[in-house]
Amino acid sequence: MSGHTHHDHHDHDHDHPHPTQPDVDGPLTYHQRLEIAVRELMIEKGVLTADEVRRTVEAMDARSPAGGARVVARAWTDPAYKQTLMTDPSRALNQVGVEVGLYKLVVVENTDAVHNLVVCTLCSCYPRAILGLPPDWYKSRAYRSRAVREPRTVMAEFGLEIPDDVAVRVHDSTADMRYLVLPKRPKGTEGWSETRLAGIVTRDTMIGVAEARLP
């Protein structure tokens, strides 16, 4: 396997110049080299193939908050679907063609009396199947440390003020559950289509640091 130059594409030939990978612009960092080393060794040992790595990355790229937004928009417009989502989230996700993944999903609903906020203090557990990869701040020391102890202050830093007559429920994702916040449907969206509604369901509303708003 020596002499090859394209560490992602051992398995097919190129008749065109390989575009420089954006992360290989400067000198590689130690950890970038480590990634190459482990991947190439695993490939040489027949544990995995470059193609499997590529396809796994593609599947990862296909998951985004749009999946969660579809689920929320359907729940806003279809009471029966919402009931399924609250009681059997896996089934509800399957119904809109969102891949469930390995973990069990818990859906927590924001109402006029309750606002939910999700954090993982121990690592950075996140409902990747429906929201894709987490933003950096979700994994940051500040968010992981403070979201459990001063959630209202943390949300205020995101521009979200929760009134005192609304209970804040924090969910620390410590084990095998993953959480989706079902945000409140904003007033003024009566009669909107699911697609249009999905457009105002941002990632942050499904983590709980924002509320869905009219554009």
């Binding site: 990978q21 796994t56 990355v57 020391r141 440390s145 830093e157 995101f158 620390d172």
Partner: peptide, 26 residues
């Protein structure tokens, strides 16, 4: 670190670099 003191949450995010996604894929 739950409950530890820390500064403000900096609302940073970035598009994951290809090497980061490959780590995830591994």
């Amino acid at each position: 670190m739950g409950g530890e003191k820390a500064g403000p949450v900096e609302k940073t995010e970035h598009d994951y670099a290809p090497w980061e996604k490959r780590v995830d894929a591994l």
